[in-house]
Amino acid sequence: MLQSISLWLTILLVVPVTATFLWVAFSRPAAVDAGELATRSYRLRDWTFWVLLAVVTPVFLYTLTLMPYGADPEAEGVQAVNVTGHMWRWELSQDEFRVGEPVQFRVTSQDVNHGFAIYDEDMTLLTQTQAMPGYTNILEYTFEQPGTYQVLCLEYCGVAHHAMVAELTVTE
């Protein structure tokens, strides 16, 4: 979902930028008064700046309400799982979960930096956090569908980085 929004938003913004550059590159005829043209252009730029500010600010503030941080380690009713990254395997205290119940993955590493990333059965990335030596990052996630999920490593960690995979099972 977020991936599709990002892709479409990129296309929707890059296309007009491209069109503007092409339009300007082939603009004719030559202007007689370049100074007057520049004055008008920079007036438009100032307007564009304020419009961008007005459009982007609410979007920006809304996205801050969706931040993945601040999970409460004392919270009740969550399934707590200890996750440790090793070169090149995942060690999980539990790998079976229930749909609809929040899971707190408490992620650390025994050696180098790893990336703990959960993929669904269609190999779409759902969420992630870093696994770091000396730190525990708490990632809270609620599975909405039963099935088999994959854990991939998303921080380069050496020669078998791409093969560092684990499986999670989610049931009703």
Binding site: L2, T10, V17, F60, T63, L64
Partner: peptide, 28 residues
């Protein structure tokens, strides 16, 4: 100039924290 102006668009999207949870360290 075009590459710079257009290239920052997917970069800024990726720098949005909630988007970064599904784009960080992907080929994006």
């Amino acid at each position: 100039v075009f590459g710079w102006a257009a290239g920052v668009i997917p970069a800024i999207i990726d720098a949005t924290i909630v988007v970064n949870t599904v784009m960080h360290n992907t080929l994006w």
